[in-house]
Write a protein that binds this DNA or RNA. Structure first.
Lengths: 218, 218
DNA sequence: GGACGCGTCCCCCGGCCGGGGGAGAGCGGG
DNA sequence: CCCGCTCTCCCCCGGCCGGGGGACGCGTCC
């Protein structure tokens, strides 16, 4: 079995941190919490200093994005595996998390023994995804991984437009896209108008159809 | 919670059958083994007669193929969900199993409580895949699912609804769909409302996204 | 410095869309 | 024979969406 898995917890809710500590307390031989942080900045300092095996990270970190933090951490400390802990059981989130370099995506309803098992697996290089989500994803997966990261340039799409398009393909409304990208709805509409012109379509559903046909999505 | 999940066990090893029976014996209120079979022929007879919620199936059935049996069973008794139980933790097998209409793929190292939980999930329509496998699959994915059928996942769409959906996926507006099918626009809207309910989405773009994800377009 | 592209945000307006009610016809099974 | 399902069509209404105008700051390139 070897040494216990060294874990850093990151969540902006004190309660969650305490809960996780309690949950993991009974498994001292297998998992050891070596630090906890409430903000991205704290987390970055801790992780670079402690170089843990796993970082357990909430997707929403107050105003900050857990995804951005994940990208930062995996870039800076590649041997530390980032596992998201979230309440959102949406496949879309999982894909974004994995694309951001995450080593796992678990739902907050896991219990202690399962969490410990997952942490051990992830420390050994496995990628762990909540089983219910993973089941659905197994069927979806092929399509989404077929394209590369940002091949939107085929139609002269800008970076931002590609991002908007990928969310559009995910079936999100203008409002939802705005929320996801932290933008005004008007800005999203503005990008969409440009998108429709470039894709030579009249509305969002046709845009989705074209994007999928030409593989412009993510 | 409702009635216990009715399960039929299929394996060519007497020992495995006995083991499963013993494992599930302690959960009589949640899972009930209503039959067991050692061959594909036996299994087919049992399943068509008993119409269980779940069929727990070994991938290797002596000389016979569990996959073929799965295809047969899902074709003949669509409401019964087939879950494979295997020792092979190879992604390839999982994809083949899902393509054959399976509702799940678990490894023989599951313990009682987890197996029971999985059986309940699968009976409720979830697709369950062993977490370690599923994690890998999420990243590696594969090319196997491209445009394949998925018997278990038809959302009870009527003929007409499917036609409307396929045009919807093509990016057509209500008016265009009406013209193509020689219908009133109101009729199209009526079909769409039913479609949104069945796909559990709020609008056309989300419907397109779901349809493409789940491959229920024609 | 000026032109240009990009990203952000704002206004107005008309039309399409989604949700809530229906209704009537046909068809098959209990 | 009636029930349930499917398919067809209707009205109203509120909200979302798409298209037309912009504006401003920020970089880059010449």
């Amino acid at each position: 079995m070897g040494a216990p898995v060294r874990v850093v917890l990151v969540d902006d809710h004190e309660m969650i941190l305490a809960g996780l500590q309690a949950m993991l307390a009974g498994f001292a031989g297998r998992v050891r919490v070596v630090g906890q942080a409430g903000t991205g900045e704290e987390a970055t300092r801790l992780v670079t200093a402690l170089r843990p095996d796993v970082v357990l990270l909430d997707v929403r970190l107050g105003p900050e994005s857990g995804l951005d933090l994940c990208r930062l951490l995996t870039g800076r400390v590649p041997e530390a595996r980032v596992v998201f802990l979230s309440v959102y059981d949406d496949e879309q989130y999982v894909f974004e998390a994995l694309r951001a370099g995450a080593g796992g995506y678990l739902l907050k309803r896991v219990d202690g023994p399962e969490l410990v098992r997952r942490l051990e697996e992830v420390a050994q290089g496995e990628t762990v995804v909540d089983p219910t989500l993973a089941g659905r994803m197994a069927v979806t997966a092929a399509r989404l991984t077929r394209g590369e990261f940002w091949p939107g340039a085929n139609r002269g799409l800008t970076q931002r437009e590609s991002e908007v398009l990928s969310l559009l393909v995910g079936g999100l409304s203008n409002k939802a896209i705005a929320a996801r990208l932290v933008l005004s709805e008007e800005t999203v509409k503005s990008h969409l108008r440009a998108l429709y012109r470039k894709l030579e379509v009249a509305d969002r559903s046709a845009a989705i159809a074209v994007a999928l046909r030409e593989g412009l999505f993510r």
